[in-house]
Amino acid sequence: MSGKEISPVVKQVLELGPPLLFFVAYLYMRDETYLIGGREYSGFIVAAAAFVPILLLSLAILWRLTGKLSRMQVFTVVMVVVFGGLTVWFNDERFFKMKTTLVYGLFALILGVGLLQGRSYLAWVMSEFLPMTHEGWMKLTWRLTLFFAALAIGNEIVWRTMSTDAWVKIETFGFPLLMFLFLWIQILALQRHMIEDEGGDA
């Protein structure tokens, strides 16, 4: 059953709102220490903890409006809940930072397993929205697998060698911008593999 269509603006607000709210909360809380339940938490950890219910609420609204969530959205929210919980439980911000590495790394691994089988799991997820030949999907999947692996390595380098401020900015703006630019370039480069909609002549 296909989902209901909603305004692209509303969709973007629901998808991009939680990371932006996390960024704003972090900027506001980063220099503070909070005593909660007898334990001291840094502003980063409090902001990370707040991010979890905000993301859950955002996706619940998106699901309510559209009737569906993508597999990537479900996987990402599970990772956020698990690693957000570990961050608070162990009072250690490294878990929240490692989440990004694991998300990108697992995406690369899953797509890579499909490629070894001669299949594109990416096509299974996205072919409904982007009609393309099998050859096109295989090329895009190879490239995206390498790109996700590079992002996972990049995240490890960033959080292990740079400040928390730098990581939050790169996580909120840098990685999403790189993803947007990469996909835009790939769509342009793979135009000859696109399948035209044949249902236009009535």
Rank of each mutant, 00 (worst) to 15 (best):
L146T: 11
A166E: 12
L177K: 04
H134G: 15
Y121R: 05
Y26V: 11
E5T: 13
W63I: 14
Y34G: 05
A60T: 12
P19I: 06
A150Q: 03
G105L: 07
V80E: 02
A149M: 14
V10K: 03
L86T: 05
G154F: 03
A50T: 03
V82A: 01
L146V: 13
L69D: 08
F148N: 15
P8S: 06
G200T: 15
F96V: 06
T101F: 01
F75M: 13
Y121K: 08
D31I: 08
H134D: 13
A123K: 01
D92G: 02
L122I: 06
W142K: 14
S127P: 07
F148T: 09
G3H: 04
V81I: 14
D197C: 10
A108M: 03
V78S: 09
G112D: 10
L122V: 11
W124Q: 15
E156Y: 10
E93T: 06
M126S: 15
L59K: 15
E40A: 11
L21M: 06
Y41N: 01
D92M: 06
R71E: 14
T141G: 01
G37D: 07
I110W: 15
Y104P: 08
T145Y: 00
G84Y: 01
F90E: 14
P176E: 08
L115T: 04
L183Y: 15
L56Q: 12
L106P: 09
L86F: 10
M132Y: 05
G38H: 04
L35M: 05
F44Q: 08
V52W: 02
Y28A: 10
F22V: 08
E32A: 10
N155M: 01
E135T: 12
F175V: 10
F22S: 00
L188A: 15
I110M: 14
W167M: 05
V24N: 08
M126D: 09
G136P: 09
S58E: 02
Y41F: 03
A25G: 08
I153V: 15
V10P: 00
G17D: 06
V80M: 06
V113M: 09
L190H: 10
P53N: 07
V88A: 04
L86N: 05
L86K: 04
G136R: 09
V168H: 04
I110P: 12
G114H: 11
L21D: 04
K11N: 11
G154D: 05
M194R: 12
V78E: 00
F148P: 07
L35P: 02
I110H: 03
L188F: 13
V46K: 03
V88R: 00
K4C: 09
V113D: 05
Y41M: 09
